[in-house]
Amino acid sequence: MSSRTFRITVRGAFDGLTAGQRAELTAAAAEHDVLHAAFTAEGHLAYDDVAVRPFFTFRFLETGETEEDILDATARAELAAESWLTERGYGFKQLKSRAQDLSLAPLGKRGRREAARADGRS
Score class of each variant (00 low, 15 high):
1 M>A: 04
5 T>E: 14
5 T>C: 03
7 R>K: 12
7 R>P: 00
8 I>A: 02
9 T>F: 06
12 G>E: 02
18 T>L: 10
18 T>K: 13
20 G>N: 15
22 R>P: 01
22 R>V: 12
23 A>H: 14
26 T>R: 15
26 T>A: 15
27 A>Q: 06
28 A>G: 05
30 A>T: 15
32 H>A: 03
35 L>A: 10
35 L>E: 14
38 A>G: 05
39 F>P: 05
40 T>G: 04
40 T>E: 06
43 G>V: 01
47 Y>K: 00
48 D>H: 13
49 D>I: 05
52 V>Q: 06
53 R>P: 00
58 F>S: 07
58 F>H: 04
61 L>H: 01
63 T>S: 11
64 G>R: 08
65 E>F: 03
66 T>V: 02
71 L>D: 11
72 D>R: 02
74 T>R: 12
76 R>Q: 14
76 R>I: 01
77 A>N: 01
79 L>Q: 13
79 L>V: 09
81 A>M: 06
84 W>Y: 11
85 L>S: 04
88 R>T: 02
88 R>L: 05
92 F>N: 07
92 F>S: 05
93 K>R: 15
93 K>D: 12
96 K>D: 10
97 S>K: 11
99 A>V: 02
100 Q>H: 07
104 L>H: 07
104 L>Y: 01
106 P>H: 10
111 G>H: 12
117 R>F: 05
118 A>S: 12
119 D>Q: 12
119 D>C: 06
121 R>H: 15
